[in-house]
Structure formats: C-alpha cells, structure tokens
C-alpha cells in the first residue's frame, strides 16, 4: 500500500526540485530571443497563442 505512494511522492519531489533548480539557472543572455522563437514555432501551442 505505501510503496506506490513513496515512489510517486519521491518522483514528484525530484521533479519539483529539478524544475526549481532549472528555473533558478538563468538563460544565457544571447539566447533569450531564440528560446521564445523555438517555443512558439516548434509546437502549435495554446500557451503560445494566448501569450500574444
């Protein structure tokens, strides 16, 4: 009973940890415009069309 909870809980913690660390690491300055372009051309994304 407790094994799935531990496994999922651990993975969630790992994910949130890496997500936070990644967010804290700044994107190199020269790449900023490239990132936006890539995010919006690579996938027809709802979040993209709503950001405009």
């Amino acid at each position: 009973m407790w094994i799935p909870i531990v496994v999922i809980g651990g993975l969630v913690l790992v994910y949130i940890g890496t997500y936070y660390l990644n967010k804290k690491t700044p994107i190199p300055d020269e790449c900023k415009d490239v990132v936006d372009e890539a995010t919006c051309t690579a996938c027809h994304n709802f979040t993209c069309s709503y950001k405009k």
């Binding site: 996938c43 027809h44 709802f46 979040t47």
Partner: peptide, 10 residues
C-alpha cells in the same frame, strides 16, 4: 496531449 496541458494552463 498538448490540448489537455494547454487548456489547464490557458
């Protein structure tokens, strides 16, 4: 599926 995550976010 992009649709589901997209609807949640947007």
């Amino acid at each position: 599926n992009c649709l589901i995550l997209g609807r949640a976010e947007a």
